[in-house]
Write a protein that binds this DNA or RNA. Structure first.
Lengths: 252, 252
DNA sequence: AGGGTTGCCTGATCCCGATCAAGCGACAAA
DNA sequence: TTTGTCGCTTGATCGGGATCAGGCAACCCT
């Protein structure tokens, strides 16, 4: 069926200007002509499937990757098979920024579900950003945003207890889904409990118990990967450390 | 004493090309002419003293700051007076990168000891980096480096126990001092135990106990702020999770 | 020098979350 | 259908590190 092939291929090759992510992704704040110039250097591959590796820690850095559909996790494989999850990436988010420095990836990227990924050769992007001031500006903002997000994560891991971490995580996902036009209260988790635990610095069992507890408290309902946030205010209270069951005494 | 004033003022106004940090800081890999161009936009103030605030969380972002001498901590002040330390910054390191994104500082910067700071108006730096490709490249690398370092910190906070954290912290300082031509094994800590604890996600008491334990194990000697690393290999073993007292079973 | 503050150290106790252990449902292959 | 595997859940126990409390030394201040 060559016809089918062509169709699915066309489906992948959505130009940036026609991509629904144009307001979230790199093209944000570029003129239509500049979007075309950016478009010319973007490479679009066939869809990847759950478990496919986007890049591996230690491999040479050539390109940044942007999630178009689906989701990706980045992680550092440790000796003895374990892994530390560093992040989950949704459509419009850019991956690989940490590798610019050394020219080598310091973490691996793996696809969590069937996903379409755009590849942007970094050297060409760098050249282009010299010619397009607003692209350079956008790059600086993107890199800076990543730094800010990791700082927030440092605070989460440094000072927050388990329930505060999970609540924050769910609210962060919620917000990101919302920005992408999806439901902020009803979504599917593409990552396992184990991966959530690794990301939040918690054991799987703790994550599981927290899901159970949150359900008992009517904060959400969860059935496997399907999550519905029922009480956003309650979750926000917990995430900000004002939860009723918090052990930390705020007013001695 | 106008004469004295002039001298100390001149002392501060070391041009980039004469600065000992030229190989660590932004000018790295720039041609002498380009260093002069960069030099023209750098602002150098009189020295700041312990406790002086460089910028405050929430204030408008205008400039990046580079430590010339001394040291700076960045932190997010939390309600109720507490603070979470996000980083310690030594000569040659750039501060404020997280604020590019929103145009507003998300953390505060405070000087830990008498320090000289260079201020670089970001808008002018951005313009200059359009004209100097190697400066743009250097900026990308710098931002990327920051991302990579924060990722390492995420791993530290997510997976390491208290002694692994403190050992890693001391070794990181050691390496950074070494790069600046100072002793890798004998140095002064400009930050308090409390600040170390906040940075590492530990209570002050734990940090203090660990210093004591490390001394008992002849890994180092510490008298208040003065630290001498005695057994680098031992510290490295602990930092990498191979310490003998580690609770985590690596080979079940 | 005296008196107050602050930073650091040490001991005792407690508790959150890791670890160990076991069972269960979903899903894939035989 | 059965069997095996994997992901998730739940229960029981343990311990690392937080918390509480007290004391000492250094370093302010006048």
């Amino acid at each position: 069926m060559p016809e089918h092939k062509v169709i699915s291929f066309e489906n992948i090759k959505v130009a940036c200007k026609n991509c629904s992510l144009v307001t979230l992704c790199l093209p944000m704040s570029l003129t239509p002509e500049d979007v075309e110039r950016l478009d010319a250097i973007v490479m679009r591959s066939r869809p990847l499937h759950r478990g496919d590796v986007l890049f591996q820690a230690g491999s040479r850095f050539r390109s940044l990757y942007v999630v178009k559909t689906g989701s990706v996790k980045t992680y550092t494989p440790s000796e003895e098979g374990g892994e530390q999850v560093l992040g989950f990436h949704l459509p419009g988010e850019i991956i690989g920024l940490e590798a610019i420095q050394s020219g080598q990836h310091t973490c691996s990227g793996k696809v969590l579900e069937t996903s379409a990924i755009c590849e942007i050769p970094f050297q060409r992007l760098e050249e282009l950003s010299l010619a397009i001031p607003s692209l350079q500006h956008q790059m600086y903002r993107l890199l800076s945003k990543e730094i800010g997000q990791e700082s927030e994560m440092l605070m989460l891991l440094g000072k927050r207890n388990a329930e505060e971490r999970l609540a924050s995580f769910l609210l962060s996902l919620s917000e990101r889904f919302k920005k992408r036009g999806l439901s902020a209260t009803d979504f599917y988790l593409s990552m396992s409990r184990h991966e959530i635990g690794s990301y939040l610095g918690l054991a799987v069992e703790t994550v599981s118990r927290l899901f159970t507890r949150f359900q008992e408290e009517s904060l959400l309902s969860a059935e496997r990967k399907h999550v519905q946030l029922r009480d956003m205010e309650g979750l926000k209270a917990i995430a900000s450390g004002q939860g009723s069951t918090s052990h930390t005494r705020r007013f001695p």
